[in-house]
Simulated scan of single mutants.
Amino acid sequence: METTSTTRKATIVPLLQVQWDLDVARPVPIIESKRVFLEDLSGMLKADNFDLWKEYLSESQRKQVVSAKVGIVHRFESSSHIGKEEHESKSLLEQISACLQILRPTRSRFQTIQLKFLSDSSTDIFRFSHPQETLPNIPQSDILNTIRAIDIERLHTISPRFLKLAENGPENVVRAARYFLIGYSEIVDNFISSLVTSRIIKHSKKNRLPTFSEVFSRFFDEEDEIVELAKSFEDNIEGYMEWIGPDELRVARDCFEEIRSRVLELLGEGSNAK
């Protein structure tokens, strides 16, 4: 009888803004039943892990990720390269990260990294989400926050209930939990990243991704309505004094929908849009 071999893997969310005395000498449980712990990342993330990703992560981004000494870790086994287990693990840590950001807002850019453990105890990174260039919008009073031991204790208590609410709660709560961390910024970031990796557009100066409006200005005149819509979207999603109000979100959403309709119309698919 043929047996399927499995590989030990992990999804990691590095935590960059942690209190200096946060003790991770031993893994700290977050959701033990799901094998999610706060762990010491020493030895898991090394500079040479990212050698193959130089085109996608700048040197400063690589250094920042490697500098993280603490992170949320979900360990699992998988028999495929990227399949159901990998997607479920990534989704799990995205939701737990959203819960942590609600409990203790920080200006950290949450990023998921997936790796496998090799036979010689080294690690090999095979998937990661591109870190957002813009910092999260949080109240001014929370800008200097760091993750403390008490925040992890609260996460341990609340996250199982948060996951149930995010999965089975009222529709508006489910949507809010799902998009809390992802939001418009990650949608835009993934859109721009796909254009760059497909070589449709190039990085801007200093090897950074172009902004949303810069992408459209490369295909349309500066005075074109679609470029103006993209700029309006950026202005409203940025907010005022680090806040984004409901009116700004509505305007940003309307701009985004108008841009989408215009692009589909130009592609000749406007009548078939879903």
Rank of each mutant, 00 (worst) to 15 (best):
I72Y: 13
I72R: 08
I72K: 09
I72S: 07
V73P: 03
V73L: 14
R75W: 08
F76E: 13
F76M: 13
E77C: 01
E77I: 01
S78P: 00
S78C: 07
S78I: 03
S79A: 10
S79K: 05
S80R: 06
H81E: 15
H81D: 15
I82P: 00
I82R: 02
G83S: 09
G83L: 08
E85V: 02
H87E: 11
E88R: 11
S89Q: 12
S89A: 15
K90V: 09
K90W: 10
S91V: 02
L92H: 03
L92N: 02
L92I: 09
L92P: 00
L93Y: 09
L93V: 09
Q95R: 14
Q95E: 14
I96D: 02
I96N: 04
A98L: 04
C99T: 10
C99K: 05
C99P: 01
L100S: 06
Q101P: 00
Q101K: 06
Q101M: 04
Q101S: 04
L103K: 10
L103C: 04
L103Q: 05
L103A: 06
R104K: 00
R104C: 00
P105A: 12
P105I: 12
T106W: 07
R107P: 00
R107M: 10
S108C: 12
S108D: 15
R109S: 08
T112D: 03
T112K: 02
I113G: 01
I113T: 05
I113M: 03
Q114W: 01
Q114D: 01
Q114P: 00
Q114N: 01
L115I: 07
K116H: 09
K116I: 10
F117H: 13
F117Q: 15
F117P: 01
L118R: 14
L118Q: 14
D120S: 12
D120M: 10
S121Q: 12
S121I: 03
S121G: 04
S121F: 08
S121K: 11
S122E: 13
D124Y: 09
F126V: 13
R127Y: 12
R127V: 08
F128V: 04
F128R: 02
S129A: 14
S129G: 12
P131W: 07
P131M: 11
Q132E: 15
Q132D: 11
E133T: 15
E133R: 12
T134N: 10
T134I: 14
L135Q: 13
P136A: 13
P136H: 14
I138S: 06
I138D: 06
P139W: 05
Q140I: 15
Q140Y: 05
Q140K: 09
Q140D: 13
S141I: 13
S141L: 09
D142V: 03
I143H: 05
L144D: 13
N145F: 05
I147R: 03
R148L: 02
A149W: 04
A149V: 07
I150F: 01
D151M: 05
L155W: 00
L155I: 01
H156T: 03
T157H: 04
S159M: 04
L163C: 06
L163W: 02
